[in-house]
Amino acid sequence: MSVDVVLQVVVGGVLLGGLYALVAFGLSLIYGVVRILNFAHGTILAVVGVMASVMFASWQLSPVLIALILVPGVFVIGALFYRGLLRPLERRSPLEATIGTVLVTVGALLILSDVTAVLAGPMQRNILLRAPVIEVGDIIISITQLAILAAIVVLTLAIHVILKTTWFGLAVRAVTQEPVAAELCGARSLGIKTLTFGVGSATVAMAAVLYVLTFPVDPYMGFGLTVKAFTIIVVGGIGNLPGALIVGVLLGVAEGLVGLFWGPEWSPAISVVLLLLILVAFPAGFRWRRA
């Protein structure tokens, strides 16, 4: 196996892994602050991706414009979803609340996927921009891929800066680390949780637009992505964005290398196996805390 082949696979893996990391950021924020595992998280990417590709196909809008339309929409819907359906469940006993949130988010997943499939068709779609490619030896990188990589880096930095410097970021970090103390210090939990749910969902919407620029999406692919994102935050640490980015990229590269050296039919399975191994090896370090 030549070095070129391996390098080509690594480049592809970094790109896919960066997108996984963006999805994981949103999940990490939400899980860190709200303590709800949103099973429909990856489905947001699937649905927004389908919508973006339909908008592109029907009106030839530029992807940037599509993102400007969809991302705020998803922010509002995410916030409303939390306030309308999940927030009322938090008043129940911890067990009932857990069951309730799991079932409501799984129900949302089913409905979102099916409605999308009925309206837009169940097939895969994406936005194909035939951009020129750069050839370095035997390695091929398209301009689109470079643009996506750049966007991932910019978005990661932006999220990082927001979390480090703004009041919202401070509150998010405080609630993630010490929910009770944060509340005592005046971080109003309902407002922050709602805002976080919206921001977390909007992050996925951004990832979705980038994702459909290279890879196809279909209405039913969301749950696999949720599992991948969860693997990433379990390994990288909840609320730890640099960690999530590193683990996301590693997961993307690992999927590529498994495909190269073992067989592509096993690539999608490794995140599940990895999740199992990590949870089995370090159960205590990742014990679930009640909010």
Binding site: G12, G13, G252, W266, S267
Partner: peptide
């Protein structure tokens, strides 16, 4: 497998 998206390898 049917859910593979990145065929680089």
């Amino acid at each position: 497998s049917a859910d593979l998206k990145d065929f680089t390898a």
